[in-house]
Amino acid sequence: MNCIEVDGLSLWYGDFQALRNVSVRIRERQITALIGPSGCGKSTLLRTFNRISQRDASVRVEGSIRILGEEIFSPEVSLIALRRAVGMVFQRPNPLPISIFENVAFGLRIHEPDAAVEAAVEEALTAVGLWEDLRFRLHSPATELALEQQQRLCIARLLPLKPEIILLDEPCSALDAKATLAIEELLGRLAAEYSIVIVTHSMAQARRVSAECFFMLLGEVVEHGPTEQLFTNPRDARTGDYIAGRFG
């Protein structure tokens, strides 16, 4: 089953065209990686899945994205419901300047004010492997945590809302090698329950974590396929050049 279906998507920042007629199918319950050199549009594509890219008033979009069968550009679609179903983790860990507990409870507090938060917070923190370390300091500020813990927290705060899809925009670029490995291992576990799309600068990371891979260049999807195949036996010469490190 596909969780995201993109057809003929083009996107402009003012006069600059960042996505050119992109069509992709992303499968559910696995990790899909978007790779490519800086400025190829991979982050823009990811940020359009939850329509956060349209915060920028100069952005203009054409084409179609269907998520869970719904056309997300349709005026009847609620942005709030869309973002509840499609969670996002950013490049720099961005916990809110409130307590650890409130960060994880944030989603429930805004979407389901009557929900029981205690159990949900414990469950989410356990899922990302933070519960044992933080259970006695849940009420200290989240911004005091180490970067890796902050990024885990940013993943944990999506979970109480039971999203269908988790988008990650270069989630490890601010982390060291050990923390990166730990986050990747966490993503591997989460892929059993969630559909995960990750944008990464690192080809090695894409190769380690993803089942399927999209290679983008200058706003277009050049090639996609199972990750192993794309890395060992690319069909397009540009993909081959990129993964061999001849540019980018």
Partner: peptide
């Protein structure tokens, strides 16, 4: 980044 975090959670 705080605004993005909040909005991306559906606030």
């Amino acid at each position: 980044s705080y605004r993005e975090a909040g909005l991306a959670l559906g606030a």
